[in-house]
Amino acid sequence: MNDPTRRILLGRVIGAFGVRGEAKIESWTEPREAIFRYQPWTLRDAAGNERELSGVRGKPQGKHLVATFPGVDDRNIIEAMVGTEIFVPRAALPPPRPDEFYWVDLEGLRVINADGRSFGTVSHLFSTGANDVLVARGDKERLIPFVQPEFVTRVDFEAGEIGVDWDPDF
């Protein structure tokens, strides 16, 4: 669950802002500005090239964040970075509070319904705006609303599984 070498995707560069080399950042942290607390960043471009970067500063701007990268003052450089993903080591994140967890820590756990039937393992989670959704992949892919305790009845890291109240045919 808590592999310190694992990297976590926290956001990406989505555009240039202004003419002085600032970047528009999409952040998936809560609150979104927290992304600047977790550095150094590993930036990975579409070709898979990676580089480490520290000292990024930023602020909220509308629905996104505006970031300044050290040594970058050219809009063209930022435009070339659009789509670049921002990763940090899992160990850089603070420990979750009791009864809380990071989505990434759920990936790979077995998903078992109330009748003991295995739905496979957690592939990933995503947010719909109305609720979060757990994606379990096994004999087929199941999308299970991550609503506790109605559909997700337990999360047991020691056993490596998540209990769900979900119809296997749905």
Rank of each mutant, 00 (worst) to 15 (best):
residue 2 N to I: 02
residue 6 R to F: 12
residue 7 R to P: 06
residue 8 I to M: 10
residue 10 L to G: 02
residue 10 L to R: 00
residue 13 V to T: 00
residue 16 A to D: 00
residue 17 F to S: 06
residue 18 G to F: 04
residue 18 G to R: 01
residue 19 V to A: 13
residue 19 V to Q: 15
residue 24 K to Q: 00
residue 25 I to W: 00
residue 25 I to R: 02
residue 26 E to D: 08
residue 26 E to A: 12
residue 28 W to R: 09
residue 29 T to S: 01
residue 31 P to E: 02
residue 31 P to Y: 00
residue 33 E to C: 05
residue 35 I to K: 03
residue 36 F to R: 11
residue 37 R to M: 14
residue 42 T to W: 08
residue 43 L to V: 07
residue 43 L to G: 06
residue 44 R to M: 15
residue 46 A to M: 08
residue 48 G to P: 08
residue 48 G to H: 13
residue 48 G to S: 11
residue 50 E to W: 10
residue 53 L to Y: 10
residue 55 G to C: 08
residue 56 V to S: 04
residue 57 R to P: 07
residue 57 R to F: 12
residue 59 K to L: 15
residue 60 P to Q: 15
residue 60 P to S: 15
residue 61 Q to C: 02
residue 61 Q to E: 03
residue 65 L to F: 01
residue 65 L to E: 00
residue 66 V to A: 01
residue 77 I to T: 15
residue 78 I to M: 02
residue 79 E to C: 05
residue 80 A to L: 11
residue 81 M to T: 00
residue 82 V to A: 01
residue 82 V to K: 04
residue 82 V to R: 03
residue 83 G to V: 01
residue 83 G to W: 02
residue 87 F to Y: 13
residue 88 V to P: 07
residue 90 R to N: 13
residue 91 A to G: 06
residue 92 A to D: 15
residue 93 L to Y: 00
residue 94 P to K: 00
residue 97 R to W: 08
residue 98 P to T: 01
residue 99 D to R: 14
residue 100 E to A: 13
residue 101 F to R: 07
residue 101 F to V: 10
residue 103 W to V: 13
residue 103 W to Q: 09
residue 104 V to H: 12
residue 108 G to H: 02
residue 110 R to K: 11
residue 110 R to D: 06
residue 112 I to N: 03
residue 113 N to G: 14
residue 115 D to I: 09
residue 116 G to C: 07
residue 121 T to D: 09
residue 123 S to Q: 13
residue 124 H to I: 07
residue 125 L to W: 11
residue 126 F to N: 14
residue 127 S to A: 14
residue 127 S to Q: 14
residue 128 T to Y: 04
residue 128 T to S: 13
residue 130 A to L: 11
residue 134 L to G: 09
residue 134 L to N: 06
residue 135 V to L: 07
residue 137 R to D: 15
residue 140 K to E: 14
residue 146 F to S: 04
residue 149 P to Y: 03
residue 149 P to I: 08
residue 149 P to S: 05
residue 152 V to M: 05
residue 160 G to M: 10
residue 161 E to C: 10
residue 162 I to T: 07
residue 163 G to Y: 05
residue 165 D to Q: 10
residue 169 D to K: 13
residue 169 D to L: 15
residue 170 F to N: 12
residue 170 F to Y: 13
